[in-house]
């Protein structure tokens, strides 16, 4: 019987996966730097996914988590293992018990694990005597308790967990270039969870958001939550580009785009009906918000052209080489 509790702090400031990743990597000494840098280098900052009715769950519905989160760790040079599935599968119990063991092993090595609560949280400790995991959700300083037997069981039909390992150093310039390329990939991908077309991503996400506002058929809480997440991520991109503009000539122009974009949106509570203490749009702000979103789309489109130009100046082996498996179909 043993017990391990890692001291780390997760705070919800960005996307839940980014917050979890930051807490884990900084706690283990695998990353040092501000959260915005991690968010941008991992590609999480550029992700923007919107449901046609602005339902709040779409903030985390940005594609196959295993793929996106592995991509995130890969660009940071960090080894990662993910596992996920659906709790209704007859084999779930076997995977659950297996996951409990490898998460405990990771904690024994001093590395916490990402866990889908929902949303993403951090498993930072275990206790064999009580057969529990300690989980931080980023909202409360007090950890949640999850029984080993309840691992993976939540209000959604699926479970997800991810652990990390060693790290190799990647030059900052290479990481930055790849971050720009990931942003381009996300911008050009219209649907994050095909064949479902109710959730759009990248450029298309803007039109979904604007369309929902104009038609008036949207979830009020979701609308605010999505935009909050969007504003935070664009702010992260802005700060990231300000720090890395020196690496690539031409990035300064993209910095100006994002600075303008962030400035247009203004203070966090500018659009919210603060009088009623509700996190919902005041109806009279919708037209102005639509205009700002259209302008934001234009600015991001311009920034993406700059990213594309910079990307074209350097070879892209991972995308131009036909892999034996992966994105390309079998030949």
């Amino acid at each position: 019987m043993s017990e391990v509790i890692l001291e780390l702090e997760m705070k919800r400031e960005s996307k839940s996966f980014t917050d979890s990743l930051y807490a884990i990597l900084t706690g283990a000494g695998l990353f040092s730097g501000p959260k915005y840098m991690l968010s941008a280098l991992s590609g999480m900052a550029s992700i923007f996914s919107v449901h046609e009715r602005l339902l709040p769950f779409c903030v985390s519905a940005y594609g196959e988590w295993g793929t996106v989160h592995k991509r995130a760790a890969d660009n940071l040079g960090i080894f990662t293992v993910t596992d996920a599935g659906r709790t209704r599968h007859p084999t779930f119990k076997s995977y659950q018990q297996d996951a409990v063991e490898w998460i405990k092993a990771s904690l024994d090595r001093g590395l916490a694990a990402v866990y889908w609560l929902p949303e993403f949280g951090v498993i930072h400790g275990y206790d064999d005597a009580d057969r529990i995991f300690y989980v931080q959700d980023g909202f409360s300083s007090e950890s949640r308790i999850v029984l080993y037997d309840n691992f993976g069981i939540n209000s959604t039909p699926f479970w997800y967990a991810q652990i990390f390992g060693g790290k190799v150093d990647i030059p900052v310039k290479d990481m930055t270039l790849e971050a720009l390329r990931m942003a381009l990939d996300d911008w050009e991908t219209p649907y994050s969870v095909p064949p479902d077309r109710k959730i759009a991503s990248g450029r298309m996400a803007y039109s979904y958001y604007i369309s929902a506002l104009e038609q008036g058929d949207f979830d009020a809480h979701g609308a605010v939550y999505i935009l909050d997440s969007f504003r935070v991520s664009r702010n992260e991109i802005m700060l990231f580009l300000q720090d890395t503009a020196i690496l690539f000539p031409g990035l300064n122009e993209a910095v100006k785009c994002y600075e303008q974009l962030v400035c247009n949106f203004g203070a966090p509570d500018r659009w919210v009906d603060a009088e009623n203490r509700r996190r919902a749009w005041s109806p009279h702000v919708v037209p102005a918000l639509v205009d700002i979103l259209k302008e934001a789309e234009r600015l991001e489109e311009h920034a993406m052209r700059i990213f594309k130009k910079i990307s074209g100046q350097y070879p892209d082996l991972s995308r131009s080489t036909v892999p034996r498996w992966g994105l390309h179909s079998a030949r």
């Binding site: 709790t87 007859p90 779930f92 029984l147 037997d149 309840n150 069981i153 039909p157």
Partner: peptide, 12 residues
């Protein structure tokens, strides 16, 4: 029979 649907939550 194999129980259909997701497993239930075990209490503390």
């Amino acid at each position: 029979l194999t129980k259909a649907g997701p497993p239930g939550l075990k209490p503390f």
